[in-house]
Amino acid sequence: MSQPFSLKIFVATGDPDGLRIVERSNWIGKALVFPRGLLPSIKQRDEFAQTGIYILIGPRPDADGEMMYIGEGDPVKPRLESHYSNKDFWTRAVFFVAGPGHLNKAHVQFLEAQLIQRAKDAKRIRLENIKAENEPTLSEADRADMMVFLDHMLSMLPVLGISAFEIARTNTTESQKLTKLFCSGKGLKAEGYESNQGFIVKTNSQASGAITPSMRDQMRGILDLREDLISNGVLSKAGEDYVFTQDYSFSSPSTAASIVLGRSANGRTEWKDQKGRTLKEIQTLQAEA
Rank of each mutant, 00 (worst) to 15 (best):
A12T: 09
G209H: 00
P59T: 03
L188D: 13
F96L: 12
G37N: 10
T269S: 15
N171C: 07
R277Q: 14
L157C: 09
E240I: 07
D145W: 01
N26W: 06
K120N: 09
E270P: 12
T212I: 04
T179M: 13
K120D: 06
L127M: 13
F95M: 09
T284Y: 01
G101H: 00
Q3S: 13
T284E: 10
Q3A: 14
A257N: 15
S155Y: 01
A289I: 05
P61V: 14
P136Y: 04
T179P: 07
E23T: 14
W271E: 04
D228A: 05
W90L: 08
D62H: 09
I57K: 13
I53V: 15
N196S: 13
A257W: 10
P35H: 04
I21L: 12
E191L: 12
T269F: 02
V97Y: 02
L80H: 04
S195Y: 01
V201L: 09
K8G: 01
T172M: 13
D88R: 14
P100L: 00
N129V: 08
G209S: 04
S208W: 00
V148S: 12
K105F: 01
E191M: 12
P213D: 11
G267T: 10
G185Q: 04
L80S: 04
G99Q: 12
N204F: 03
L32H: 04
Y193F: 13
E81H: 03
L225F: 01
T13K: 08
E23F: 01
Q274V: 13
N196I: 03
I200C: 07
I57C: 15
K177P: 01
Q206K: 09
